[in-house]
């Protein structure tokens, strides 16, 4: 984030900054992370970005999000970067890890899939490589190219 854009967002003493979220997905990211009731959250939308064109930023105050939590947004915002802040200093920087399997995280849109009929926990495997993965339901075997839309 540039100095200019930093000033436009509420400065953080302690917590987690999620940067490089493709616009306009900040609200979706907050929902997926399940942090909407976890204290003060600052959301910035449509910052200019050399990498993405436009990007969103989410700051979660006083909460250090673990990789297990932030990796949940892998299919929505795989380009996101995570900065953990302590005493106004970045103490940890990391990228999103895209898992090979997604259990219970996505819903299968196929109404005739057993996961929608028998109440089975969904299970998808990643098929594509890179930042735009596709996923395949291990039950009905359908392949989906926009897995971000399937996140529950």
């Amino acid at each position: 984030m540039t100095e200019d854009s930093k000033l436009k967002v509420y400065a953080l003493e302690s917590g987690t900054v999620i940067d490089h979220i493709p616009s306009p997905l900040a609200l979706k990211v907050v929902e997926i992370l399940g942090v909407q009731h976890e204290g003060i959250i600052t959301i910035g939308i449509n910052f200019p970005s050399s990498q993405l064109g436009r990007k969103d930023v989410v700051k979660v105050e006083n909460l250090k999000l673990t990789p297990a939590v932030t990796d949940r947004m892998a299919l929505v915002a795989p380009t996101a970067t995570i900065n953990i802040i302590e005493k106004s200093q970045v103490v940890e920087k990391r990228k999103i890890h895209i898992p090979n399997e997604f259990k219970g995280m996505l819903r299968c849109p196929n109404p005739n899939c057993v996961t929608n009929v028998e109440g089975v926990t969904t299970h998808f495997v990643r098929e594509g490589e890179g930042s735009k993965p596709t996923v395949r339901c291990i039950y009905c075997e359908r392949v989906y190219r926009q897995p971000g839309d399937l996140v529950v």
Binding site: N110, N112, C113, V114, T115, V117, V120, Y139, C140
Partner: peptide
């Protein structure tokens, strides 16, 4: 079975 994925389950 008429349901897709029933055999996997």
């Amino acid at each position: 079975h008429n349901i897709e994925g029933a055999a996997r389950l």
